[in-house]
Every structure is written in structure tokens, then in C-alpha cells.
């Protein structure tokens, strides 16, 4: 029985090993693969962003926003920060996406709402001017004055190190952000609370 299993395992492993050596011979380095992945994620970000800011249907805009979040999560993976990528999926797509969806639904602002028509031309021109300004100013500076840093090995960040950091040097920000979240939640409940007398007066 054991012999059969080991034979099956070796039969499975042999083509996988061959594939691995083939891939290693084909890819001159990991740089090209990383560049291709980077281009893919940036295309995701641009497409999602254009949908998010241009769609006249807010639900579609939210789907574009989620596409952008997915692209950024891929960039985090490319940065060898898997924990951040999963947090991006959980917090942004999971929490913020659902919150935006609630905001759209609670304001009855779907395909026939106030966003249904295009904004006026001056607004579009001014918006693109304001958006291109940081791109035109910071972009060249970023390319010219990029810090020259030597090669670093990109190893995935240890999640245990992140947890250790949260209870040592980042303890105060960690507690502060829990207070901020609590205050935000209480404030949201307080703002949205409809008092009984106000309801009876209407």
C-alpha cells in the first residue's frame, strides 16, 4: 500500500519538477515577471478608478472602487506584504465597500439619482486640472529625486513581527485607534439616532 502511494506521489511530482526547471530556464529573472504583474495591477487600478469616478451609476462606481482596491491588494502582494494584502481585502473591500453600498442604497441614489447626468464641462476641466497638478508636480520630482537605495531582498514580512510591533513600540497608536473606532461608532449611532419626540413631532 505504501509503495503504491509513493509511486503515485513520484508520478505526480515528476512533471511538476520538470515544469519548475522549465520555468526557471524560461524566466531570466523574477524582474520581468514582477514587471508584468505590476503592469497588470496598475491597469486594474486605472480601469477601476476610471469606472469609479466616471460612471453615472453609483453602484457601478462602487464596483470600480472595489476593482481599484483589488489592484492595490495585488500591489501589496508584489511588495511582499501578504498581511497588508489580506487586510486590504478585509477592511477596504469588506468593510468600506459595504459601507459605500449602504450609503448608496440609503440615499436611493442609484441609476436615476442626482449623479445620472454628466457634470458641467467647467467642473470636469477643473477636476482634471486639480487631479493632474500633483501628477505633474510630484511625478517628475519622484522620478528625478528618488532615493538611491541598494538592492534589498524581498522576503515576505513576518506577521508575527507585526503583532509584536503592535504590543511594543506601536502600543499607543494601537490603543488610540481602538478609541477612535469606538468614538466613530458611537458618533455614528448618535448622529443617526432618531429621537422619539422628534419622530412624534413630524
Amino acid at each position: 500500500m505504501d509503495r503504491i502511494i509513493s509511486q503515485i506521489l513520484s508520478a505526480i511530482r515528476a512533471p511538476l519538477d520538470a515544469l519548475e526547471t522549465m520555468l526557471a530556464a524560461w524566466l531570466p529573472g523574477q524582474e520581468i515577471a514582477a514587471l508584468v504583474a505590476y503592469a497588470l495591477y496598475v491597469i486594474l487600478i486605472i480601469a477601476g478608478g476610471l469606472i469609479a469616478i466616471g460612471s453615472r451609476n453609483l453602484v457601478r462606481a462602487m464596483m470600480g472602487l472595489i476593482l481599484t482596491f483589488l489592484g492595490v491588494a495585488g500591489l501589496y502582494l508584489l511588495l511582499a506584504s501578504p498581511f497588508l494584502a489580506f487586510m486590504q481585502l478585509l477592511i477596504y473591500i469588506g468593510a468600506v465597500g459595504v459601507l459605500v453600498f449602504f450609503a448608496i442604497m440609503l440615499t436611493k441614489n442609484t441609476s436615476f439619482g442626482e449623479e445620472a447626468s454628466f457634470p458641467k464641462l467647467p467642473n470636469i476641466i477643473l477636476g482634471f486640472l486639480a487631479g493632474l497638478a500633483p501628477l505633474a508636480v510630484l511625478g517628475p520630482i519622484m522620478i528625478i529625486a528618488a532615493p538611491k537605495i541598494g538592492e534589498r531582498t524581498y522576503q515576505a514580512t513576518d506577521t508575527a513581527e507585526l503583532g509584536r510591533g503592535l504590543i511594543t513600540f506601536d502600543l499607543v497608536p494601537f490603543e488610540l485607534i481602538s478609541i477612535i473606532l469606538l468614538v466613530a461608532m458611537a458618533g455614528a449611532v448618535f448622529l443617526a439616532w432618531r429621537r422619539p419626540e422628534a419622530r412624534s413631532r413630524r
Binding site: 469616478i53 441614489n109 477643473l126
Partner: peptide, 23 residues
Amino acid sequence: WLASLLLLSIGIVGLITRRTLVG
């Protein structure tokens, strides 16, 4: 950084051209 700059620009354009708070 260029990718994050792109995100900043897209966000600014959206912030200015949208007419509702949700957008």
C-alpha cells in the same frame, strides 16, 4: 510611488467632479 500618485490624482478628480456626498 507612481502608482500611489495615480491613486491620489484619480481620487482628486472624483472628489471634484462628483456632485453627491456618496460619490
